[in-house]
């Protein structure tokens, strides 16, 4: 609020600036950058640990999609809730999770967010409103609508953001969920992170409409397309949708056009896209580079300050990995813990 007030005072100088620079304080802008770095370094750290055999299973990395996770979460408060996806590390961090406990979860330790029972694909932090990643494509969509139903019925004022990928837009659950959110005017924001590929199958080959957001029309809700690699554009679309939801005007579908640099998962041979395509996104459209360039251009931070943020993020990552390594393994006796709430 004070950011907006300040922006109004200096409206003549700032009115041409992109949304976030008018909406948020410097500290919030730098925190967003810090979290974007944290997401990327977390995933690079997790990948490294995986290569070294410290983490088993598989993981789905969102490197290249950081602006989408962060921009969407900027207008949210801690009590607002999200449902996330198998590519959900970024959502988890953007919503406020501690990377120490995320690493611990990936290491399968008791100190992890899911006590070592969920791993990467079920990472969650209910205390910051993250109801969990999901191993089923489209699985979180109706659940988010249910969370929004609770918010409306119990008048909690919460907004629910439902992240999903382009692959989910061809699941029946997507259509059923959007329809119900619309007929019941629920406070939910559907966010499609369209990275162009559902595993190996491009959206052009899988999806009958040019944009996932085009499908919003079928459910009488606004469909908004943004460059998912431009933090301010994502945050602005999210802000509008969250406000609309909080007013009681119902759901919005936002489509963030973005790209994942890594393969689908650890088994991906990357034979369905070209090196040129990947290089183009990495070189010319990287969300972190673009945001850093703006912060300098608009005089919000110096390159030394940005360097300091990167260094502090690296320290946090290193400490997180150390915490995970040092944490205890679950006892085998606890195999059946939490199958039920009240143990028999």
């Amino acid at each position: 609020m004070s950011g907006r007030a300040r922006a109004m005072q200096v409206e003549t100088e700032t009115s041409n600036l992109p949304f976030i620079y008018r909406q948020y304080e410097r500290e919030q802008l730098l925190d967003a950058l810090r979290k974007m770095h944290l997401i990327r370094r977390f995933e690079e750290g997790a990948e490294e640990c995986y290569m070294r055999g410290l983490i088993h299973g598989t993981m789905h990395l969102s490197i290249g999609q950081e602006a989408s996770a962060m921009g969407i979460c900027m207008p949210l408060v801690n009590e607002d809730q999200i449902t996330s996806t198998h590519r959900g590390h970024g959502h988890c961090i953007a919503k406020g999770a501690d990377v120490k406990r995320m690493f611990a979860e990936f290491f399968g330790k008791t100190t992890g967010y899911c006590a070592g029972r969920g791993g990467s694909m079920h990472i969650a932090d209910v205390s910051t409103g993250n109801l969990g990643a999901n191993g089923i494509v489209g699985g979180g969509l109706p659940i988010a609508v249910g969370a929004a139903l609770t918010a409306k019925r119990l008048r909690t004022g919460k907004v629910v953001v439902c992240f999903f990928g382009d692959g989910a837009n061809n699941e029946g659950a997507f259509h059923e969920a959007l329809n119900m959110a619309a007929i019941w005017k629920l406070p939910v924001v559907f966010v499609c992170e369209n990275n162009g590929y559902g595993m190996s199958t491009s959206t052009a080959r899988s999806t009958a409409v040019a944009n996932v957001a085009d499908r919003a029309a079928a459910y009488s809700m606004p469909g908004v397309i943004v460059d998912g690699n431009v933090l301010s554009d994502v945050a602005e679309a999210s802000h509008d949708a969250v406000e609309r939801a909080r007013r009681g005007d119902g759901p919005t579908l936002i489509e963030c056009k973005t790209y994942r640099y890594r393969g689908h998962s650890k088994s991906d041979r990357n034979r369905y896209r070209t090196k040129d395509e990947i290089d183009d996104w990495m070189t010319n459209r990287d969300p972190i580079k673009r945001y850093e360039a703006q912060l300098i251009e608009f005089g919000i931070a110096t390159s030394d300050e940005l360097e300091a943020i990167r260094n502090s993020v690296q320290q946090e990552i290193d400490a997180g990995i150390e915490f995970a390594k040092a944490s205890p393994m679950p006892s085998i006796d606890g195999l059946a813990d939490n199958v039920y709430t009240l143990e028999a």
């Binding site: 969509l141 609770t150 059923e176 119900m180």
Partner: peptide, 22 residues
């Protein structure tokens, strides 16, 4: 609910997790 068994069941799950008792 609409005739949407998958979606309806999922809404019930989401509502249950967040504080209702469907």
């Amino acid at each position: 609910t609409p005739i949407s068994e998958l979606g309806g069941a999922g809404v019930a799950v989401g509502a249950a997790v967040t504080g209702l008792r469907p």
